[in-house]
Design a protein around this nucleic acid. Sequence first.
DNA 1: CGATCCAAGCTAATAGAATTAGCTTTGCAG
DNA 2: CTGCAAAGCTAATTCTATTAGCTTGGATCG
Lengths: 187, 187
Amino acid sequence: MPRAGLSPAKVVEEAAALADETGWDNISLAAIAARCGVKLPSLYKHIASLEALRLEVSTLALRELATAMADAVLGKSGSDAVLALSAAYRGYALAHPGRYAGTVAAPTGEHQGQLEAAAAVLRVVEATLAGYGLTGDDAVDAARALRAALHGFVHLEINDAFGLPADIDRSYRRLVEGIDAAMASWV
Amino acid sequence: MPRAGLSPAKVVEEAAALADETGWDNISLAAIAARCGVKLPSLYKHIASLEALRLEVSTLALRELATAMADAVLGKSGSDAVLALSAAYRGYALAHPGRYAGTVAAPTGEHQGQLEAAAAVLRVVEATLAGYGLTGDDAVDAARALRAALHGFVHLEINDAFGLPADIDRSYRRLVEGIDAAMASWV
DNA sequence: CGATCCAAGCTAATAGAATTAGCTTTGCAG
DNA sequence: CTGCAAAGCTAATTCTATTAGCTTGGATCG
């Protein structure tokens, strides 16, 4: 019998793909094993447990999200950068809804890599807001406000909580513009 | 052996309390049964399945949230009402984090009562924004923006995603004020 | 080229959860 | 008092995660 040639990274990647297809809550070792062409207990050669795997998927997603955001703001500043970052944020979340759920829903504080990846996301947001002249608590407030607005919108969108069919792109744009204007006026 | 005197409503209430204590994802029939002083299979006399129970908890939470918001805005209007509604929203979410998670994370569209409760929440938000002179798509955008901002903030807060210890109350107030100002300027 | 050894994969076994079937008994209605 | 529907139970089934321990592929080193 030929080997499957798995690796920890491949298992995490399959788990992430499964999450995107069936939802973060529906990740199961049984489904991942089937997808990898391997029996369930074999996965334990590459991961420590289901919880540990979830943390790895969460970490992967946070890193991808940070990268997507950083790429989007490259060479931009001010409102331009905020709009680009917001578009990249939503784009990632809609393209990878399962992973995205894992960026928030996963347990926090037990995994060094996850903490660093979460910090990287925060760093990109803060750097993007650097041009607004905010310092200290004001900068913290602004970063939280932007992150909250973006997360709240895409989370509700992914979970079909916007009943009406009215143009969602437009709603998102106006929300981002509103937050941008608010931060600009905080001096 | 005396009867436990359960009812569907009591089971839902226990499940909601359990969710608040241990998290929406950790609801289990085993734990609920123990809490009710009953063996696990006995629960099936009152509920159809774990999934059905989650929908009931979600519905309960949406109703409670709608009521809390409606009470908060009673007799108020404009920015006053928006601030009161925002405080009530966050207050409910922090007091009942498990239930609150269920208001968004639960499967949607299969349960009439849940749909109605979700509509009730939306109705309170729309009524609160009535004084801003927004109509049609503008009103929809505003309701979505407010809901997204509130949800995003409290969801991140509940999940400990705000690393820093900086004053969270203040951050929330500024976010709400920012959204309020943005909506006021949309005319 | 062949002996060796580690890691990848397997089977088997355990434990816990949800669900279903079917039995027993409580406690109210008549 | 009698009977019956509902509430609770035990037993059995299925599915998942996890652990233990065996087998073997295949790279490494002589």
